[in-house]
Each structure stands twice: as C-alpha cells, then as structure tokens.
Amino acid sequence: MEKRKLEINEENVRLDKFVMQEMPNLSRTLIQEYIKEGHILVNGKNEKASYKIKMNDDIEVTIPDNKDMDVLPEDIPLDIVYEDQDVIVINKPSGMIVHPSAGIYSGTLVNALLYHCKDLSGINGVNRPGIVHRIDKETSGLLMVAKNDKAHQSLSEQLKEHSVTRRYVALVHGVIPHTHGKVNAPIGRDVNDRQKMSVTKNNSKEAITNFTVLERYKDMSLIECRLETGRTHQIRVHMSYIGYPVYGDPKYGKKKDDQSHGQFLHAKKLGFIHPTTGEYLEFECPLPDYFQAKLDELKGE
C-alpha cells in the first residue's frame, strides 16, 4: 500500500481535478473510484469528487495493494550494459517508463526486469523492485538497478552523498556564449500547471545544475550536464529557465520542435562504487541514432 499527502497551493478546485493534476498517472475515472472507495481522504473524511479544496485541507491518497498485483513480467528487450549478482546497468530507450504507477502496469522497465531476472531488491515495494533512481520517460540512457537489498542500500547511500557520477548530454536551443555555466535555482510544482515543475520559491527544493558547452551550431548548442541535486525534470526546467530549452521537450521546449522522440536528453555516463567489491565502475553509452542524426544534420547546415 502506497500513501501520499498532497501539498495544496490553490483553492476552490474540485477534489478529483486537483488529485489528477498532482498525480497525472491516475486517470480521472480511477480517481473518482478511489474517492468513492475512501482511498482519497480530506481531513480524514471521505468527501465527494466535486468537493472544493481549501488551503488548509489535509489530502491523503492511498494506492491499494491489490493494484500492485497487476505488475507482471513482460518479454521486452533490454540493452544491458553490465550485469552481475548485485547490479544491472541498463541503457534505457526514450519512450520507456521506468516503473509502474497507478494506472500504468505494462511496458515499463520494471516489467522487462521481472522477466529478465527474478532477483531484484524489494526495498521500494512490488511496483519498483530494484529501482534505485529514475530518469524521465522520454530521456534515454544509463540507469543502475539493484538485485538485492544490500546493493540497493549501498547505491542509495551513494546517491544521497552525491558520489555517483552522472553526466547527461542535451541539445538545447540557442548558442550559449560561455563554455561553462551553473544554474542554482529552486524547483517546485508549477502553480499554473500541476503536471509541470518550475523555478519557484514556493514549496520548492534546492536545485543545482552545472553544464559545459560541447558544440555550438547555427542556432543550437550541445551541452553536458552534471547535477548536484536530483529534482524532477531538473535539467529541462533549468535550461528553459535560463532561455536555452531542450530541443524536442514537450513540456518545457518549443512547439515547433520535432517531438516524436521527446526531449533530446541522454544519460551518457554513470559511475559508482560496487556494493560488494568496493571497485569503482564507470559506464558510458553512445547517443541514440535519432539524436546523432540530428547532430549530423546541424553540422551540415
């Protein structure tokens, strides 16, 4: 059973609509079903879907355990970069969701992992076995997965200590004049669009992104990013905030972009201390074909 308390930043919104904004993976039909069944409570009470929320309301959503049983192994091909008895490193394609959530129980990386191996850590429950960290659905690249609880605890601690090496490559709009940059701007939920994040002082957390310009084109730049924090959509929000949105980004980019592959953002490098041997391992994967083809096109302009 998964429980979540929702932060309220606006009033006079229908309860079902507000929950859908906060938890976009839930359909409105499912939310209304949860409300009727008492899985969504306001101040500990069962309210109607049409209830208008107030700033001081306490809203708690409970995802029933029986929904977890729908997560099944699926024979989905995996690009495995490294694997041993403790860890798997996957090169995730753009378009694949990392783990199931309410309303989404098929086609995820977890479904593929459950088919590939039976030994995954159980720290994050049956919906997220082995998942130590995530990358966005439309972001491609390297992801580490724990095959047992000991490995999971070790990798999670390394993430908390910021000792994991993670480098992302992104194609952004605009020609960035300086070679290095640092964006230090807090990120929180966008008050105007609950499915987006934004730079804000309200209910936000510290977010720091470092970037280096790798190539400059006619009206775009290729950059490498290093994160000091790991906020939702961090690179996408920060680069849009400073006026260089990621190409192809459906949420924070330009509508004229080719969005068939989502944002051109790739987790290219991943390094960590092996949970058992203590050896430092580092992996790197090439850009997806569509990403490289776009760069070749830009070079030819």
Rank of each mutant, 00 (worst) to 15 (best):
E2M: 14
L6R: 05
E7D: 13
N9Q: 13
E11M: 07
E11R: 08
N12L: 15
D16R: 09
V19K: 00
Q21S: 11
E22L: 11
S27A: 00
Y34Q: 11
Y34T: 11
H39I: 12
I40A: 06
K52N: 11
K54G: 06
I59W: 03
E60R: 13
T62F: 10
P64Y: 11
P64V: 08
N66K: 14
D75M: 04
D75C: 00
P77D: 01
L78K: 01
L78E: 02
Q85M: 14
V89Q: 01
N91R: 09
K92N: 02
S94Y: 06
G95W: 00
G95S: 02
I97R: 01
V98D: 04
P100V: 02
V110D: 03
V110M: 08
N111W: 04
D119I: 10
D119C: 09
S121H: 09
G125T: 10
N127G: 10
R134C: 04
G141Q: 03
G141L: 10
G141T: 04
L142D: 07
L142C: 08
D149P: 01
K150P: 14
A151F: 06
S154M: 13
K160M: 04
V164T: 11
T165S: 02
R166P: 02
V169W: 06
V172F: 03
G174K: 01
K182Q: 08
A185G: 04
P186C: 03
R189N: 05
N192S: 05
V199Y: 12
T200I: 09
K201H: 15
T209E: 08
N210I: 04
F211L: 04
R216I: 00
D219T: 09
C225Y: 05
T229Y: 08
H233T: 03
S240H: 15
I242K: 13
P245S: 14
P245M: 11
Y247V: 15
Y247S: 12
P250N: 00
K251L: 09
Y252M: 06
G253R: 05
K255F: 00
Q259H: 13
Q263D: 06
L265P: 07
A267P: 06
A267L: 05
K268F: 03
F272R: 07
E279K: 10
P288M: 08
P288Q: 05
P288H: 09
Y290E: 05
Y290A: 09
K294E: 07
L295D: 07
